[in-house]
């Protein structure tokens, strides 16, 4: 098991993808936290009734996790590619030759992706906390109003890992890597948020909205909320469980399917 996990990490860190992603995640985290740090602390936004509402902690949470929505899309891509590039370049053959127990091989991928998610999470925090704290300090706002902020930072690492697992499932469901990335990112970035927005206007289906992946991800890090919106987000721990359930379902499905597959 340990050997298979080590092999998965090596796979990831021996192509150029990893540092391209690292730069993307770092830059987006820094930019978004800088932007949110400035925007959320502007008087004309918080005072406005149509604006956002949240405690000091929630504002800081939002600033530090401002790049999370870009981050999780990138992690979705990483997850897809960890399996998709194996199909594409047929390295899946050597993976299963060196680890013939496919459940073990897939479990190694799952563990490695959680680890990779955490690594990228740290890179992202490096960007967001340094820039965000600086901007907040310039605004004379306490950059660490409570220890709850630390919980949010830790959960953002978990969220990235879980999105990578969702990607793993998508990558197995759609074996063509390019199609999987287009569909995966398209759904997660555009369709699902629009769906959530639309459903929030339907009384009968409103209750479903907080359980959508993007909503759960935002609830996990407990940021500011849009004032005037009816739908109450889940509490952080419930949201974490919901996202973990998506990740578990998709990666379990992927593992089940991979074990049965003929590799030719």
């Amino acid at each position: 098991m340990g050997a298979a996990i080590k092999s998965e990490f090596r796979k990831f860190f021996t192509t150029r993808l990893w540092w391209g992603m690292a730069i993307g995640i770092f830059v987006s985290a820094a930019l978004f936290s800088g932007f949110f740090g400035w925007a959320l602390t502007s008087d004309d936004i918080t005072a406005d009734q149509t604006g956002v509402e949240g405690s000091a902690t929630q504002i800081v949470n939002s600033v530090y996790t401002g790049g999370l929505s870009v981050g999780y899309l990138l992690m979705l891509t990483v997850g897809i590619m960890q399996i998709g590039s194996e199909y594409r370049h047929k390295t899946i053959t050597s993976t299963f030759l060196s680890t013939p127990k496919r459940v073990t091989a897939m479990f190694a991928k799952i563990v490695a992706l959680l680890g990779i998610g955490a690594v990228y999470g740290l890179i992202s925090l490096l960007g967001s906390v340094s820039v965000g704290a600086m901007v907040l300090s310039l605004r004379d706002i306490d950059p660490f109003p409570s220890t709850e902020v630390l919980r949010t930072l830790a959960l953002s690492l978990l969220a990235l890992g879980l999105w990578a697992l969702i990607g793993l499932g998508v990558g197995i469901l759609i074996p063509n890597q390019v199609a999987a990335i287009l569909v995966g990112v398209g759904v997660a970035w555009i369709i699902e948020p629009l769906l959530g927005f639309g459903l929030s206007f339907v009384d009968a289906l409103q209750g479903v909205v907080p359980y959508l992946p993007s909503q759960a991800t935002n609830a996990m890090v407990n940021g500011v909320t849009q004032s005037g919106v009816e739908v109450k987000p889940l509490s952080w721990w419930a949201a974490a469980l919901v996202l973990a359930a998506y990740a578990a379902a998709l990666s379990a499905f992927g593992t089940w399917r991979t074990v049965r597959q003929d590799i030719s």
Binding site: A3, A4, K6, S7, F9, R10, K11, T14, T15, R16, L17, S94, T95, S98, T99
Partner: peptide
């Protein structure tokens, strides 16, 4: 995109 040596290292790790 992976070097020959790294390809072998991936398998060696497994």
């Amino acid at each position: 995109g992976r070097s020959g040596r790294d390809h072998l290292r991936v398998l060696a790790a497994a």
